[in-house]
Design a protein around this nucleic acid. Structure first.
Length: 198
DNA sequence: TGGCAGATTTTA
DNA sequence: AAAATCTGCCAA
């Protein structure tokens, strides 16, 4: 499991460090896991696309919570997005998890998604939330330590959940936003076929 | 209080 | 290209 010291860094640095880390959900329907391959940083200063930019509301309150906790929100009235809170309490910064590479529980992911193609299971923020069985019940939950939803570098029988030396980080602009669209705050593992788009 | 845009995905 | 449909913001 990750520890609190993982978050002793800027949100941008954390967005980069999260690439390669495993996200695991041990839920009632079964266990699913994926390797993070794409992230976006959302900052408290100078970033109008950040939900925290216009202060705290009922919806974005979890974003102002403990680093290492989850911020889950409803988007477009239909889907959910999953974020990792990154800044100290009260600041309001987070990293959106945009894509993961399916690692285990893949049949369950297929079932939840109603999709067969591996590349289509978790290649987008709304998709991976469905495939992983993440919901509003995880909002504000800690993602470190012994939780049902957590981040880790160690998974039995699998290589270490870190970015390999051969994997470069590609940095570019974020997706689906208008204001702040010029900021290069999106990161993904170059060449990964599991990212939301190139 | 009404209209609209939004960190999306799917289907026509 | 357009629909599905919730939340927050800003104008009346």
């Amino acid at each position: 499991m990750l520890t609190t010291s993982f978050f002793n860094a800027s949100t941008v640095q954390i967005a980069r460090k999260l690439l390669g880390v495993y996200l695991v959900h041990d839920g009632p329907e079964g266990s699913t896991a994926g390797r993070i391959v794409e992230t976006e940083a959302y900052l408290s200063k100078g970033d109008p696309a950040c939900h925290a930019a216009r202060g705290q509301t009922r919806r974005n309150a979890p974003m102002f919570g403990q680093p290492g906790s989850a911020y889950v929100y409803l988007i477009y009235g239909m889907y959910h997005c999953f974020n990792v809170v990154t800044a100290k309490p009260g600041r309001g910064e987070a990293v959106l998890i945009r894509a993961i590479e399916p690692v285990s529980g893949i049949d369950l992911m297929r079932e939840r998604r109603g999709q067969d193609k591996l590349m289509n299971l978790c290649s987008g923020p709304g998709k991976l939330v469905i495939a992983m069985g993440i919901g509003m019940e995880h909002n504000s939950q800690m993602l470190l330590g012994a939780q049902n939803l957590f981040l880790t570098r160690k998974l039995d029988g699998l290589p270490s959940g870190i970015r390999k030396r051969s994997e470069a980080i590609y940095q570019t602009t974020r997706i689906g936003i208008k204001e702040g669209s010029e900021l290069q705050l999106r990161f993904y593992i170059e060449g990964s076929p599991f990212v939301s788009r190139n």
